[in-house]
Structure formats: C-alpha cells, structure tokens
Design a binder for these strands. Structure first.
Lengths: 151, 151
DNA sequence: TTGTTACTTGACGTTAACGTAAGCGTTATA
DNA sequence: TATAACGCTTACGTTAACGTCAAGTAACAA
C-alpha cells in the first residue's frame, strides 16, 4: 500500500490535485515558500512539499499574504531566534489572532444574512402556501434588510 | 438628542470614523457602491450612506470583492428580478455560503495553531518552572508542528 | 528522425484596490 | 487680504499574485 510517504509528484500532478496552475507553484518557489528537489531541470515534489502547499493554500484562504505565509512556514527561524525575537513574533501572532476572530464574527454575520436571503427567495419562489417556518425566516430577512440601511 | 438619523457627514469625517482614506470613499463612489448627495461639488453623506459603508467594509473583511459587494448591496435588483433571475441569485448565495463555511473552518484551524504557537513561545520565554498547563499546550504545539510537515 | 508531450526559464501583461501628486475652487480664520 | 484647511477632479503610480506568451530542453513514440 503506497502510503504517499515516499511518493513524489510532478508539478502538474500537484497543480491538478490542488486546483492551482503550475505557474502558481513555480511562483511559490520563486518566493521561497516551496523548494522542491530537482531531477535534472524538472521539479520533483515530496510529501513534505505537498504538505507545505496545503498549508500555503490554507493560509491564503484565511487571508495571509504569501510573504506572511513564508515567514510562518519557517518555524526554524522562530525557534532559533533570541527571546526578543520571540517577543516580536508573539505580538504578531496575537494581533493576527484578533484579526482572525473579527473575521470569524464577520463571516458568521454574512452567513446568517445570506441564509436569510436564501430563505426569503425560496419563499418568493414557492409563493404558494409557503410554510410557516419559511415565512418567519423571510420576515426575519426583511427586517434585516431594513435594518441594514438604518442604525 | 441627535440620533444620527438625520445627520450628515463630510468625507473626512466618515473616513476618520471608519479608518479609511477619503480616496477610498471616492473610489467606492466611482465603482457605484456609494452615491452620496452633493452640496455644490462637495459630497454629503447621509446615515444611509454610512450604513452602506459599514456593509462595504464588512463585506471586504470576509473576502468579497468590491464588484460582488456592489451587486449584493443592490437588493432592489434582486427583489424585482424574474423567478429565473432569482434562481441565479440563490445559487450564487448558496455557493458563497459554502465558501464562507470553509473559510470559517480554516480560520478556526489557524486560530488554534496560532494560539498553540503563543503558548509554546510563552513556555519558552518563561523557561523557569513553566506551569503544567503551559507545558501541555506547548507539547500539543510541537505535535502540531511535526504533524504539519507530515501527512 | 521526427513528432508529441511535459517541463523549463525569462519576460512582459493584467487586475483590484487604492496611493500619490498636480492643479484648482471654496470657506474659515488671522 | 492672505493663508490655511478642506474639498474637488484628473491622471499616473504601485503592489500582489499570478496569467500569458516565447523560446528552449529532455524523454519517449512512431
């Protein structure tokens, strides 16, 4: 059973698996986020590279820039740094945590609003005998819609 | 008591309140996200404009593009559309909800990792008699750190 | 040998979301 | 009356994260 542990991937295999382009992967290497081995000229990606890619894409999804991701991927430089250096990183981590928490609140709000919107549209589409629950959700949405232009 | 309901704001007042530049507000107007009244040449922002700005910034925080925000702000066009049009919007809403939920998962993962990282750094900094709880969180982080380069 | 396919390295192009600077008008204050 | 302070438009500049060629190489098939 090939457990992927010692497998290798070509650039287009990885690109396809993660739905990114080969260009993007080369770009990440250029920026120091990846450095796959080489076989001749061709890049050869290990399971480690693949894991890093996964982290890169996750980082992107939550809004980190590639530069930030690059810094964070390099745990060595954090663990080896002086205590002062450590303090700097702690501040940055904490600040980022706050940003992320705010972002989570925003996202939850957005999800609620979008779901209410869906309910409202469903009710509109059905139009005939909309269930009580749908109607109440629709009313909630209308209230929301009004509220968003006041306060 | 001036309840803000019939107040107006100048561009720099709003800019300061929301920590954006006047340039950004003009830009949003250019793109059709805001359209403040005018007094002569000068823009005059109403409470409604202010509420829209709040929504714009929230939309930005959760990753919507200005173009997407513009479309969503325009509820009229949704409510007035044909049922087919409505269906299109429902699909877009639902898709967006899925993206947001994935984003929330990512964010929660990132928060956990960053908090574990902070705990680990604290333990490192203290270095003297680190409490059992800190030590266990630190161990958790080290496990995480190893795990991230495997699987 | 000649394709065909996958990969490479430049190098320039593109888009979003503003920044920045120039030049000008209006209003408040010294 | 002049000199800020604030606002306006117009227009070019900037950054991140790639996209899009162009031109070349290495491996393998017919």
């Amino acid at each position: 059973m090939p457990s992927n542990a010692s497998r290798t991937w070509t650039i287009s295999e990885l690109a396809e698996e993660f739905s990114v382009t080969a260009r993007a992967l080369r770009f990440y290497e250029d920026k120091g986020l990846l450095n796959p081995a080489r076989h001749g000229q061709a890049r050869v990606f290990s399971a480690t590279d693949r894991a890093r890619l996964r982290l890169i894409l996750r980082g992107k999804r939550v809004g980190f820039s590639l530069e930030e991701i690059r810094e964070m991927l390099d745990l060595e430089s954090i663990t080896k740094g002086s205590p002062q250096h450590l303090g700097v990183w702690m501040k940055r981590f904490r600040a980022r945590i706050e940003v992320l928490k705010q972002q989570r609140r925003d996202i939850e709000g957005a999800i609620e609003e979008l779901e209410a919107g869906c309910a409202w549209m469903e009710a509109r589409q059905a139009d005939l005998e909309p269930s009580e629950e749908l109607k109440s959700r629709a009313r909630a949405f209308e209230a929301l819609a009004r509220a968003r232009l006041e306060h």
